[in-house]
Design a protein around this nucleic acid. Structure first.
Lengths: 388, 388
DNA sequence: CCAATATTGCTATGGAGTTTACGAAGTACG
DNA sequence: CGTACTTCGTAAACTCCATAGCAATATTGG
């Protein structure tokens, strides 16, 4: 079918493959003995031994000398994956705030930097704030740009293959911004720009409430509605990066959905438009009749778009996330009920637990996936760090 | 992440991997010399030589002795993939007909058997007809059930993991039929039952109009509307096998769409309900005003559901297939126009060329994929045929 | 202190691929 | 018609990798 190069396996490549296998096993395990690794990989003990020592030499693994052993026999030396060999950076450029996380190769967050920014900030201000917060995060974490092996930035609006949001974005003036190009001067590593909903979906499967599922429809519910799709365990972007943008279909009323909350009668004039939804949720909890009506209408509209996604993809789980997920207690049950009415096979509906950090966490996850892919295609030989 | 066995590569496994690489190269190529294979796989000439001879010994390849050579130097022996080592069976169990195809491992159809059946036939009759046509096809092709390495059957309605259509099916009484179990007595090989739209989508990517695309929304348009989704080059079924069933959402009006054609004013009483649509298409071509109105309404309704799928998945191509694709000349342009109005990023719209055979061809394709997967996981050693 | 047990390190063995080399089989050309 | 040239087929030597088995070593328990 394809005419691309079909890779025959050379003997040196064999060793590399087995090294990668050991790395993979090491990474998913607490510090491990050679014998355990041998059992895990199916390789012989001597082979694993040689490989493990090689990995220590090249920095991928560290030796843990045996301490007080609890078993009989000679205590075994243990090896652990050297997660601090490299780090990744994940950033969420939101309307109101910028959040940057730095994590090691295991995904442990080692530093967090947050800054709020006006929703009407122009692209120049926003980029300057981004640069500043990245610089701050690196400095405070004691890292330089060369310690970072991959960068992912989340923005609102569909992102195309080049990392631009030309189709549409709610950030003022952002249509013409080429964020990847902007960051390319600061980092030598791969830089990925991705849609915020898609990143949040990744986070939810990584650390959140959908860890067990391979087919997930993630709903980012806030003043804007969005969705991220994970199918067969992989984030799907679509051909032009616009997968999940079901809100564009007016018949499904996603655009209008948050309006029911914002324009709910009875919201005091003292409450700012941004906080109206929170007020309505609280009022609904207290039994306010207008608030309950608004909530009902909101859920019905959300369910309609969600049903379209569910019918299209037949996921195992629908995750209700985003800013409004704090009020999931009010939404989950009626949303589930509406979906049951509209869909053929009804998926589970769960509430997100990651809250406001989900986009930045998802950015970390995507950066780690990027490192992984290069690791398992390029190989261990070259350090995975800079491209040039 | 996973705790499953992580495969280390043994030396014998290495040889197997390289054998598989050579098989793969051989399969996509006209009869090939050892030197060419070596260049293609990156292996050395002696290594490929040994492997090729081994493949001939185990029946996977055949030798083509050199004939009149056109180049200088000693003419090379050529090897070709032995596509007739095994065969696959693909069947389309439709409302009005049953179509069975037998193909070799290259996908060349070696036999076709077709039979029409009443739309109201009960499950017993339908299964009997299926058995008969399979027996006929095997007999006339000079094969037995043991020559078949994989069977796929296409039916209407969403198919779950066990091969049953418990959610919904338009075939009378079919809800309780366990087709896979029925066929298990007749074949020792893997048997897959799959939804007809999904199979037609596969066919369109294999031999049809979407060979170049990895992200495809396939529309099966006929008296019933359905869809099959190919994302990142792979057919996606959804968690419960119900992906693409967007027609269940009444707001998107797929259920009603064919009705515009069937109930078009002006259709002569002499035309049977099944042929009404064809009459309307013809009348529209002749400029009949009522027919054009019906067609417009039909296209608008089709476009609405299609737009939901397009927005959800952002495909490269939308393929208009199924029985009505014969009249694609009337549909394509307005459908494309409607989609442009409704979608963010507008995909190409193409008309299917495979016609009524697409489901059976897709069944063949899925059977071949099944053989492939077993080949590349289980390996060459065991003949891929019977499971027990 | 000694026996039991498990790990570590070492050496011999065998399989697979590569390199090198040479005979074989055909073409091109004087 | 014969020689030079090209390419193929195959064998031998070599390298690399993983395995198997054994000796050495470190720890626990009696």
């Amino acid at each position: 079918m394809t005419d691309q190069v079909i890779a025959g396996v050379d003997l040196s490549r064999l060793r590399e493959l087995n090294s990668l296998t050991v790395v993979r096993a090491l990474r998913d395990q607490p510090p491990t003995t050679v014998t355990e690794l041998a059992a895990l990989t199916g390789l012989s003990r001597p082979a694993v031994d040689v490989i493990a020592q090689g990995l220590v030499g090249s920095g991928w693994a560290k030796v843990v000398e045996p301490g007080a052993s609890s078993t009989v026999g000679r205590p075994a030396r243990r090896y652990r994956f050297n997660a601090t060999a490299g780090h990744v950076l994940g950033v969420d450029v939101g309307g109101h705030k910028i959040l940057a996380l730095i994590a090691d190769l295991d995904g442990n967050v080692v530093h967090t930097a947050r800054r709020s920014i006006g929703a009407d900030a122009d692209p120049g201000e926003r980029l300057a704030a981004l640069d500043e917060i990245i610089a701050t995060a690196l400095r405070e974490a004691g890292k330089t740009a060369h310690d970072i092996w991959a960068v992912t930035v989340g923005v609102t609006g569909p992102v195309d293959a080049t990392g631009r949001t030309t189709l549409f974005t709610p950030l003022p003036g952002w249509q013409t911004v080429d964020l990847a190009a902007h960051l390319k001067d600061r980092f030598a590593c791969p830089i990925v720009v991705e849609n915020d909903c898609k990143l949040a979906a990744l986070a939810e499967r990584w650390l959140g409430v959908a860890r067990d599922a391979d087919d997930i429809v993630f709903l980012l519910a806030g003043m804007r509605m969005g969705a991220g799709l994970i199918i067969d365990g992989t984030l799907r972007r679509g051909y032009g990066g616009a997968a999940g943008e079901i809100g564009a279909l007016k018949a499904l009323r996603w655009l209008a959905a948050p309006g029911h909350l914002q324009n709910c009668p009875g919201v005091p004039a003292s409450v700012s438009p941004d906080d109206a939804a929170a007020w309505v949720f609280n009022a609904a909890r207290d039994g306010n009749r207008d608030a309950r009506t608004a909530l009902n209408r909101y859920v019905k509209d959300v369910a309609l778009g969600a049903a379209a996604l569910v019918l299209a993809l037949d996921p195992q789980v629908v995750v209700f996330g985003g800013g409004f997920s704090r009020s999931a207690d009010l939404v989950l049950e009626p949303l589930s009920r509406e979906l049951a009415k509209l869909c053929l096979r009804v998926p589970e509906v769960r509430a997100s637990t990651l809250g406001a950090d989900s986009v930045a966490l998802g950015a970390l996850r995507l950066a780690l996936i990027e490192v992984d892919q290069r690791l398992f295609s390029v190989g261990l030989s070259a350090p995975v760090a800079p491209r040039r």
